[in-house]
Protein backbone atom coordinates (compact mmCIF):
# COMPACT_ATOMS: atom_id res chain seq x y z
CA UNK A 1 0.00 0.00 0.00
CA UNK A 2 1.36 3.38 -0.91
CA UNK A 3 1.40 5.91 1.82
CA UNK A 4 3.16 8.70 0.03
CA UNK A 5 0.14 10.93 -0.41
CA UNK A 6 -0.60 13.27 2.48
CA UNK A 7 -2.74 16.35 2.60
CA UNK A 8 -2.38 17.14 -1.10
CA UNK A 9 -5.45 15.43 -2.52
CA UNK A 10 -7.62 16.52 0.37
CA UNK A 11 -7.01 20.13 -0.49
CA UNK A 12 -7.92 19.53 -4.12
CA UNK A 13 -11.06 17.68 -3.11
CA UNK A 14 -12.24 20.58 -1.05
CA UNK A 15 -11.62 22.85 -3.98
CA UNK A 16 -13.91 20.63 -6.06
CA UNK A 17 -16.66 20.61 -3.46
CA UNK A 18 -16.56 24.39 -3.29
CA UNK A 19 -18.21 24.38 -6.70
CA UNK A 20 -21.72 24.90 -5.37
CA UNK A 21 -23.74 24.74 -8.58
CA UNK A 22 -24.04 20.96 -8.79
CA UNK A 23 -26.40 19.19 -6.38
CA UNK A 24 -25.07 16.70 -3.85
CA UNK A 25 -27.08 13.85 -5.33
CA UNK A 26 -28.66 13.68 -8.73
CA UNK A 27 -30.59 10.52 -9.61
CA UNK A 28 -32.43 10.12 -12.90
CA UNK A 29 -34.55 7.15 -13.96
CA UNK A 30 -32.80 4.65 -11.73
CA UNK A 31 -34.09 1.09 -12.07
CA UNK A 32 -32.68 -2.05 -10.56
CA UNK A 33 -33.62 -5.71 -10.53
CA UNK A 34 -31.91 -8.56 -8.68
CA UNK A 35 -30.47 -11.36 -10.83
CA UNK A 36 -33.55 -13.51 -10.10
CA UNK A 37 -35.69 -10.88 -11.82
CA UNK A 38 -37.22 -9.21 -8.76
CA UNK A 39 -37.61 -5.52 -9.57
CA UNK A 40 -36.62 -3.42 -6.59
CA UNK A 41 -36.25 0.08 -7.98
CA UNK A 42 -38.62 1.14 -10.76
CA UNK A 43 -37.54 4.52 -11.97
CA UNK A 44 -36.31 6.85 -9.26
CA UNK A 45 -35.70 10.55 -9.76
CA UNK A 46 -34.25 12.48 -6.87
CA UNK A 47 -32.22 15.64 -6.37
CA UNK A 48 -30.63 16.43 -3.02
CA UNK A 49 -29.02 19.82 -2.60
CA UNK A 50 -25.84 20.45 -0.64
CA UNK A 51 -26.39 20.71 3.07
CA UNK A 52 -29.84 19.19 2.88
CA UNK A 53 -30.96 16.42 5.22
CA UNK A 54 -33.44 14.09 3.62
CA UNK A 55 -35.36 11.31 5.35
CA UNK A 56 -36.15 8.32 3.17
CA UNK A 57 -39.09 6.39 4.61
CA UNK A 58 -41.28 3.57 3.42
CA UNK A 59 -42.50 0.08 4.32
CA UNK A 60 -40.20 -2.94 4.50
CA UNK A 61 -39.11 -4.08 1.06
CA UNK A 62 -39.73 -0.69 -0.53
CA UNK A 63 -36.14 -0.62 -1.84
CA UNK A 64 -34.68 1.91 0.59
CA UNK A 65 -31.49 0.04 1.46
CA UNK A 66 -31.04 -1.05 -2.14
CA UNK A 67 -31.23 2.59 -3.13
CA UNK A 68 -28.51 3.54 -0.64
CA UNK A 69 -26.19 0.91 -2.09
CA UNK A 70 -26.47 2.66 -5.46
CA UNK A 71 -25.17 5.92 -4.08
CA UNK A 72 -21.60 4.64 -3.90
CA UNK A 73 -21.77 2.18 -6.75
CA UNK A 74 -21.93 -1.07 -4.75
CA UNK A 75 -24.99 -1.89 -6.83
CA UNK A 76 -25.23 -0.45 -10.30
CA UNK A 77 -28.65 -0.35 -11.87
CA UNK A 78 -29.61 1.39 -15.06
CA UNK A 79 -30.23 5.11 -15.04
CA UNK A 80 -27.99 8.00 -14.10
CA UNK A 81 -26.55 8.88 -10.71
CA UNK A 82 -24.05 11.59 -9.97
CA UNK A 83 -22.61 12.62 -6.63
CA UNK A 84 -21.41 16.23 -6.44
CA UNK A 85 -21.28 16.23 -10.21
CA UNK A 86 -19.26 13.02 -10.33
CA UNK A 87 -20.93 10.20 -12.29
CA UNK A 88 -21.14 6.96 -10.30
CA UNK A 89 -19.28 4.66 -12.65
CA UNK A 90 -16.33 2.34 -12.38
CA UNK A 91 -13.63 4.90 -13.14
CA UNK A 92 -14.87 7.31 -10.45
CA UNK A 93 -15.66 4.75 -7.75
CA UNK A 94 -12.63 5.52 -5.61
CA UNK A 95 -13.52 9.20 -5.32
CA UNK A 96 -17.26 8.54 -5.05
CA UNK A 97 -16.67 6.17 -2.13
CA UNK A 98 -14.56 8.74 -0.35
CA UNK A 99 -17.27 11.35 -0.66
CA UNK A 100 -20.20 9.10 0.24
CA UNK A 101 -20.04 7.73 3.77
CA UNK A 102 -22.36 4.74 4.01
CA UNK A 103 -23.33 3.70 7.54
CA UNK A 104 -24.97 0.30 7.64
CA UNK A 105 -27.84 -0.77 9.81
CA UNK A 106 -25.92 -3.44 11.71
CA UNK A 107 -22.74 -1.97 13.21
CA UNK A 108 -21.33 -5.51 13.45
CA UNK A 109 -20.95 -5.43 9.68
CA UNK A 110 -19.04 -2.20 9.78
CA UNK A 111 -16.70 -2.97 12.64
CA UNK A 112 -14.84 -5.93 11.19
CA UNK A 113 -11.38 -5.41 12.63
CA UNK A 114 -10.16 -6.12 16.13
CA UNK A 115 -10.09 -2.69 17.69
CA UNK A 116 -11.99 0.58 17.37
CA UNK A 117 -8.84 2.40 16.24
CA UNK A 118 -8.13 -0.11 13.46
CA UNK A 119 -11.69 0.08 12.19
CA UNK A 120 -11.78 3.86 12.11
CA UNK A 121 -8.36 3.93 10.42
CA UNK A 122 -9.42 1.45 7.72
CA UNK A 123 -11.03 4.01 5.40
CA UNK A 124 -8.34 6.72 5.54
CA UNK A 125 -5.61 4.06 5.15
CA UNK A 126 -7.33 2.90 1.96
CA UNK A 127 -7.20 6.48 0.74
CA UNK A 128 -3.42 6.17 0.85
CA UNK A 129 -2.91 8.74 3.58
CA UNK A 130 0.26 8.60 5.66
CA UNK A 131 0.26 7.32 9.23
CA UNK A 132 0.22 10.73 10.87
CA UNK A 133 -2.69 11.90 8.79
CA UNK A 134 -4.53 8.63 9.46
CA UNK A 135 -4.19 8.95 13.23
CA UNK A 136 -5.28 12.58 13.01
CA UNK A 137 -8.40 11.50 11.14
CA UNK A 138 -9.10 8.73 13.65
CA UNK A 139 -8.89 11.19 16.52
CA UNK A 140 -11.08 13.72 14.77
CA UNK A 141 -13.73 11.14 13.88
CA UNK A 142 -13.84 9.57 17.32
CA UNK A 143 -14.09 12.99 18.91
CA UNK A 144 -17.07 13.84 16.70
CA UNK A 145 -18.98 10.81 18.02
CA UNK A 146 -17.79 11.21 21.61
CA UNK A 147 -15.68 8.05 21.60
CA UNK A 148 -12.24 9.58 21.92
CA UNK A 149 -9.91 7.41 23.98
CA UNK A 150 -11.43 4.08 22.96
CA UNK A 151 -8.98 3.39 20.11
CA UNK A 152 -7.56 0.30 21.79
CA UNK A 153 -10.92 -1.16 22.80
CA UNK A 154 -12.20 -4.34 21.14
CA UNK A 155 -15.32 -3.57 19.14
CA UNK A 156 -16.82 -6.67 20.66
CA UNK A 157 -16.80 -5.17 24.12
CA UNK A 158 -18.66 -1.97 23.23
CA UNK A 159 -22.32 -1.44 24.04
CA UNK A 160 -24.69 -1.42 21.10
CA UNK A 161 -25.06 2.36 21.24
CA UNK A 162 -21.28 2.77 21.25
CA UNK A 163 -20.98 0.39 18.30
CA UNK A 164 -23.44 2.54 16.36
CA UNK A 165 -21.42 5.66 17.11
CA UNK A 166 -18.12 4.04 16.18
CA UNK A 167 -19.72 2.83 12.94
CA UNK A 168 -20.47 6.47 12.14
CA UNK A 169 -16.88 7.39 13.01
CA UNK A 170 -15.54 4.76 10.58
CA UNK A 171 -16.94 6.79 7.70
CA UNK A 172 -16.40 10.24 9.23
CA UNK A 173 -12.67 9.53 9.21
CA UNK A 174 -12.86 9.65 5.41
CA UNK A 175 -14.30 13.19 5.67
CA UNK A 176 -17.31 12.40 3.50
CA UNK A 177 -19.46 15.13 1.95
CA UNK A 178 -22.57 12.97 1.99
CA UNK A 179 -23.58 10.74 4.86
CA UNK A 180 -25.98 7.93 3.93
CA UNK A 181 -27.37 6.28 7.06
CA UNK A 182 -29.40 3.07 7.06
CA UNK A 183 -31.67 2.86 10.11
CA UNK A 184 -29.29 4.75 12.41
CA UNK A 185 -31.56 4.50 15.45
CA UNK A 186 -32.83 0.91 15.20
CA UNK A 187 -32.49 -1.14 18.39
CA UNK A 188 -31.14 1.76 20.44
CA UNK A 189 -32.40 2.53 23.91
CA UNK A 190 -33.87 6.05 24.31
CA UNK A 191 -30.74 7.52 25.86
CA UNK A 192 -28.35 6.13 23.23
CA UNK A 193 -30.78 7.20 20.55
CA UNK A 194 -30.88 10.75 21.88
CA UNK A 195 -27.07 10.84 21.97
CA UNK A 196 -26.74 9.57 18.41
CA UNK A 197 -29.35 12.00 17.09
CA UNK A 198 -27.49 14.92 18.67
CA UNK A 199 -24.22 13.74 17.16
CA UNK A 200 -25.74 13.34 13.71
CA UNK A 201 -27.50 16.69 13.88
CA UNK A 202 -24.19 18.40 14.67
CA UNK A 203 -22.44 16.99 11.60
CA UNK A 204 -22.17 19.66 8.89
CA UNK A 205 -22.66 17.38 5.88
CA UNK A 206 -25.43 16.45 3.48
CA UNK A 207 -27.46 13.56 4.87
CA UNK A 208 -29.76 10.90 3.53
CA UNK A 209 -31.37 8.97 6.36
CA UNK A 210 -33.27 5.76 5.73
CA UNK A 211 -35.51 5.10 8.71
CA UNK A 212 -38.65 3.60 10.17
CA UNK A 213 -38.27 5.95 13.11
CA UNK A 214 -40.51 8.78 11.86
CA UNK A 215 -39.85 11.11 14.80
CA UNK A 216 -36.20 10.93 13.72
CA UNK A 217 -37.22 12.52 10.43
CA UNK A 218 -38.72 15.43 12.38
CA UNK A 219 -35.59 15.78 14.47
CA UNK A 220 -33.00 15.50 11.72
CA UNK A 221 -34.48 16.27 8.33
CA UNK A 222 -36.37 19.19 6.83
CA UNK A 223 -37.39 17.09 3.88
CA UNK A 224 -38.93 13.63 3.68
CA UNK A 225 -39.27 11.27 0.74
CA UNK A 226 -41.57 8.22 0.79
CA UNK A 227 -40.42 5.25 -1.22
CA UNK A 228 -42.90 2.44 -1.88
CA UNK A 229 -42.75 -0.39 -4.37
CA UNK A 230 -39.51 0.90 -5.84
CA UNK A 231 -40.95 4.34 -6.65
CA UNK A 232 -40.92 7.73 -4.97
CA UNK A 233 -44.52 8.37 -4.04
CA UNK A 234 -44.18 11.56 -2.01
CA UNK A 235 -41.52 14.21 -1.55
CA UNK A 236 -41.80 17.42 0.46
CA UNK A 237 -41.20 19.21 3.74
CA UNK A 238 -41.19 16.76 6.63
CA UNK A 239 -44.19 18.33 8.45
CA UNK A 240 -46.29 18.26 5.33
CA UNK A 241 -45.52 14.64 4.52
CA UNK A 242 -45.52 13.09 7.96
CA UNK A 243 -48.60 14.89 9.26
CA UNK A 244 -50.66 13.70 6.31
CA UNK A 245 -52.27 10.68 7.96
CA UNK A 246 -53.97 9.45 4.81
CA UNK A 247 -50.71 9.49 2.87
CA UNK A 248 -48.90 7.63 5.64
CA UNK A 249 -51.65 5.01 5.94
CA UNK A 250 -51.58 4.42 2.19
CA UNK A 251 -47.94 3.40 2.47
CA UNK A 252 -48.16 1.38 5.68
CA UNK A 253 -46.53 4.07 7.78
CA UNK A 254 -47.66 5.66 11.03
CA UNK A 255 -46.37 8.01 13.65
CA UNK A 256 -45.99 6.68 17.22
CA UNK A 257 -49.09 6.74 19.40
CA UNK A 258 -49.77 10.26 20.79
CA UNK A 259 -46.80 11.69 18.94
CA UNK A 260 -46.62 15.49 19.00
CA UNK A 261 -44.50 17.04 16.26
CA UNK A 262 -41.76 19.31 17.60
CA UNK A 263 -42.35 23.03 17.23
CA UNK A 264 -38.77 24.27 17.36
CA UNK A 265 -36.36 23.67 14.52
CA UNK A 266 -33.24 24.11 16.58
CA UNK A 267 -31.47 20.89 15.73
CA UNK A 268 -32.15 21.32 12.05
CA UNK A 269 -30.51 24.71 12.02
CA UNK A 270 -27.34 23.29 13.52
CA UNK A 271 -27.13 20.65 10.81
CA UNK A 272 -26.50 23.26 8.15
CA UNK A 273 -22.90 23.86 7.22
CA UNK A 274 -21.09 27.00 8.23
Amino acid sequence: MSRAVSSGPVATLHAVSADTDVPAVLVQGLTFAYPDGTEVLRGIDLVVQRGESVALVGPNGAGKSTFLLHLNGILQGSGRISIFGLAVETKNLREVRRRVGLVFQDPEDQLFLGTVGQDVAFGPANLGLNEEEVSLRVEEALEAVGMLGSEEKCSHHLSFGQKKRVAVATVLSMRPDLLALDEPTSNLDPKSRRRLVQILAALPVTKIVVTHDLPLAFELCERTVILDGGRIVADGPTEQILLDERLLAMHDLELPYRFAPPTSHSCRASSRPG
Binding site: L69, N72, I74, R94, R97, R98, V100, L102, F104, D106, D109, Q110, F112, F122, G123, N126, L127, T170, V171, M174
Partner: peptide, 11 residues
Protein backbone atom coordinates in the same frame (compact mmCIF):
# COMPACT_ATOMS: atom_id res chain seq x y z
CA UNK B 1 -22.33 -7.40 4.10
CA UNK B 2 -18.87 -6.97 5.58
CA UNK B 3 -17.41 -7.04 2.11
CA UNK B 4 -19.83 -4.32 1.04
CA UNK B 5 -18.94 -2.28 4.13
CA UNK B 6 -15.26 -2.63 3.26
CA UNK B 7 -15.69 -1.72 -0.38
CA UNK B 8 -17.72 1.31 0.70
CA UNK B 9 -14.65 2.54 2.53
CA UNK B 10 -12.33 2.19 -0.41
CA UNK B 11 -11.11 -1.41 0.10
Amino acid sequence: RVYVAMVSRGY
